[in-house]
């Protein structure tokens, strides 16, 4: 049993890292009051940009191209999210429709660009991050093989970002202001907070983080941009955001939980002990428990109260 665990665990962590960072992106956006179901699309933009950059610059820049590639993926996601911010904040568009359009636009435009820039809808990168055992820590019994073996550097980057996010959201004035815009923008405005600006920051942060998530997908376990990148990771992140009650560490737990279920679903055919369990259970599990969680949460609303409503200063 420990054999199975120690071979699944590093894979689950690798899968959880982008899931977690995308969900965290959603958290910033929704906490500022803008519903973002375009996470899948923003993730795809990041995945495409980083794959394109790395594949065309690896020969001249070497391994440095990989690092630059994930930065570019994150920035591209941030820039693309401005469309969603403009539509939902300035134009007061329905945020769900705008998010849907982001998803459609992203999958169309990235594949369009891939075809017209490279001649193929698939972009392979020559090299991504390499799995490493962390010196020293991987030798710790039990924990070592689970958490510190066969791990990507990006996984730790993601965990650091989660901790920073928690600190920013709950310990700094900026975090209070951002959350106030998602709870009661009228009150926030009357206290002198610039609601429009805070919501822009929230949405753009979500674009950056979702783009980073997409770049991590490419540079760690996927290794290639293609239409298959759009297979629901952004929506799984949305489920993790809700199941984690819109809180950084809640989202961390939910992402781990879902990432694990997803990995077991993908790997179940490889292990005798798991073969009897049809993968439908593991694959649908995150969505089923999220719906159940919503029923339980419904008694006392836990999400940001003003999420989804355009801010109208006239209502003050």
């Amino acid at each position: 049993m420990f054999d199975i665990l120690s071979s699944i665990f590093p894979l689950a962590l690798a899968y959880t890292a982008p899931l977690l960072i995308i969900a965290l992106g959603g958290l910033f956006s929704e906490r500022s009051g803008v519903v973002n179901i375009g996470l899948e699309g923003l993730m795809g933009i990041g995945a495409f940009s980083s794959a394109f950059f790395i594949s065309s610059n690896y020969e001249s820049l070497g391994d440095f191209a990989i690092i630059l590639g994930i930065i570019i993926g994150a920035l591209a996601g941030g820039v693309f999210s401005i469309i969603h911010a403009f539509a939902s904040i300035n134009m007061k568009a329905d945020q769900v429709i705008s998010g849907t359009a982001i998803n459609m636009l992203s999958s169309a435009i990235t594949i369009y660009l891939a075809r017209s820039l490279t001649g193929s809808a698939n972009i392979q990168i020559i090299k991504g991050f390499i799995k490493n055992d962390i010196a020293g820590l991987s030798k710790i019994p039990l924990i070592g093989p689970l958490f510190f073996s066969n791990a990507y550097a990006t996984t730790y980057l993601v965990i650091i970002i989660v901790i920073i996010s928690w600190y920013v959201l709950y310990k700094l004035p900026f975090g209070y202001h951002l959350r106030a815009c998602g709870e009661n923008p009228q009150a926030a405005d009357s206290m002198g907070i610039n609601v429009i600006k805070m919501r822009y920051i929230g949405v753009i942060l979500s674009g950056i983080l979702a783009g980073l998530g997409g770049a991590i997908v490419i540079t760690t376990y996927y290794g290639e941009f293609s239409a298959n990148v759009y297979s629901g990771l952004g929506f799984l992140a949305l489920a993790a955001l809700i199941f984690g009650k819109w809180k950084p560490f809640g989202v961390l737990g939910a992402s781990l939980f879902f990432g694990f279920a997803k990995t077991v679903a993908d790997m179940s055919q490889l292990f005798e002990a798991l073969k009897k369990m049809p993968n439908i259970y593991f694959n649908t599990f995150p969505y089923v428990v999220t719906i159940l969680a919503l029923i339980i949460f419904s008694k006392n609303s836990v999400g940001p109260k003003a999420a989804g409503e355009p801010y109208d200063p006239g209502k003050r």
């Binding site: 705008s98 849907t100 636009l105 594949i111």
Partner: peptide
């Protein structure tokens, strides 16, 4: 011209129809 162009146009139409304040 990649066929995805049509999907881009559809998405853009949705944006303009939804963001009709513009």
């Amino acid at each position: 011209v990649p066929k995805e162009l049509i999907e881009i146009i559809i998405a853009v139409i949705i944006f303009f129809a939804a963001a009709n304040l513009m």
